[in-house]
Amino acid sequence: MKDSTRDSALGYAGQGFSLLPLGSRNGTRPKAPHPVLKSGWSFRRDGDRPFVGQHDPRMIDLWWSKFADSNVGIITGMPSRLLVIDCDRHGSEPLLPPSGTASVNLGDLLSGRDGVSAFQGWCSDHGVDLSDVPCVETPTGGGLHYYWRADRPVRMGPWLPGVDVKADGTYVAAPPSSVNGVAYRWRVPFETLPVVPDVLLAALDGDRGQFNGGSSLGASGGLPATHEFVERGFGWFSGSRNKDAYRLSWRLLGDTYDVAIGTLYRAWQVTAQEPHPFPWAEVVKAYESASRRRAREVIPDWRPQL
């Protein structure tokens, strides 16, 4: 791709990506949506139709002819059939193991916020080869964006420490966008996007909430089996009865209400009530909290045609 943002934007549109112009490359908000979009656009999921960008080359040409200094934003998720794993890095060195050595223990990475090492370590442990995955170097602290094609919705939001999932409802800045004079740059360019691996999809479909409270759990299989909570109650796993109740509630959201509440009740019945009582109302509160959070993450009921 040529270095001008207009030519790059037209190239991305030709790849089937849906775009939006971002702020000026030299402005104060270079990664924010361009002010021209302020009227009638939204990524919110509270009933409004989310902004899905444009892939029409005529509109792309109009936008970047009028706002030539705009950065390039690519809409992730279903509008572009695109999943991006956004890895931040704050001054740490990569922790990928040398060839032929034991893989990095993900638990060793969770105390920091080096998303690049956390994600590379997870991929090493789970057999995901990143060598040919399209990858962008970001201008902020040595972060990386990994690109895959996603043919179904994936929940956006935080995953591993320092790692965000960019999918339905958001966007990424793409090369040659720049921040403070430092440009996004393709480290591994692409002609055709690879399909996201099944093992990665399975992890992203799982309980990501276990990483948001500073837990040292692994990405998949970190939470013990449901029957262990039914047999032992809440509190033995994380040290917090409320936290265990919330995490199990999150897992059970895929079941019917009656099944989920019945399972939680059986676990509560064997939960220790010392050194102070843990009333059933606290478990109900945990389930309702998990339900509200899931409702905020529901993928919008729209599927634009490309």
Rank of each mutant, 00 (worst) to 15 (best):
4 S>A: 15
4 S>Y: 10
7 D>W: 00
8 S>L: 08
19 L>S: 01
21 P>R: 09
25 R>L: 13
29 R>I: 02
30 P>Y: 06
32 A>S: 14
32 A>R: 07
34 H>W: 12
36 V>K: 09
39 S>N: 13
41 W>G: 07
42 S>N: 11
42 S>W: 10
44 R>L: 14
48 D>V: 03
48 D>A: 13
51 F>P: 06
53 G>I: 03
54 Q>V: 13
55 H>G: 05
63 W>Y: 15
65 S>D: 13
66 K>C: 06
68 A>M: 05
71 N>Y: 11
72 V>C: 03
74 I>H: 01
75 I>G: 09
75 I>K: 06
75 I>C: 11
76 T>V: 07
78 M>R: 14
78 M>P: 01
87 C>I: 04
87 C>S: 07
87 C>Q: 05
88 D>Q: 04
94 P>Y: 04
94 P>M: 08
99 S>W: 09
100 G>W: 12
100 G>C: 10
105 N>V: 13
107 G>Q: 15
111 S>V: 08
112 G>L: 09
115 G>P: 08
117 S>V: 10
120 Q>A: 08
121 G>D: 05
122 W>G: 00
123 C>N: 07
126 H>Y: 12
129 D>L: 01
132 D>H: 11
132 D>Y: 05
133 V>M: 02
135 C>S: 12
135 C>F: 02
136 V>R: 00
138 T>H: 05
144 L>A: 04
145 H>I: 09
146 Y>H: 15
146 Y>M: 06
148 W>G: 04
149 R>N: 05
154 V>T: 14
158 P>V: 00
165 V>H: 01
166 K>H: 03
167 A>T: 11
171 Y>K: 01
172 V>A: 04
173 A>H: 07
175 P>M: 09
175 P>V: 10
177 S>I: 02
177 S>L: 03
178 S>K: 11
182 V>R: 15
183 A>S: 15
185 R>Y: 03
187 R>C: 05
187 R>W: 04
188 V>Y: 01
188 V>A: 07
191 E>T: 14
191 E>W: 00
195 V>I: 12
197 P>Y: 09
197 P>K: 06
208 R>S: 08
208 R>T: 12
209 G>T: 01
213 G>L: 11
214 G>P: 06
214 G>M: 06
216 S>R: 10
218 G>N: 03
218 G>Y: 02
221 G>T: 11
224 P>A: 02
226 T>R: 14
230 V>A: 12
232 R>F: 08
235 G>D: 10
236 W>Y: 13
236 W>N: 01
237 F>I: 02
241 R>H: 10
242 N>I: 05
247 R>C: 00
252 L>R: 02
252 L>K: 04
252 L>Q: 09
254 G>V: 11
259 V>S: 13
261 I>W: 02
267 A>G: 11
267 A>D: 07
269 Q>M: 13
271 T>E: 08
272 A>M: 06
273 Q>M: 12
274 E>N: 13
275 P>M: 12
277 P>S: 11
278 F>C: 09
279 P>T: 10
280 W>K: 04
281 A>P: 00
283 V>I: 13
287 Y>V: 03
287 Y>R: 15
287 Y>P: 00
287 Y>T: 05
289 S>Y: 06
293 R>V: 05
295 A>E: 15
295 A>W: 08
295 A>D: 15
297 E>V: 03
300 P>N: 12
300 P>Q: 12
303 R>T: 14
306 L>A: 11
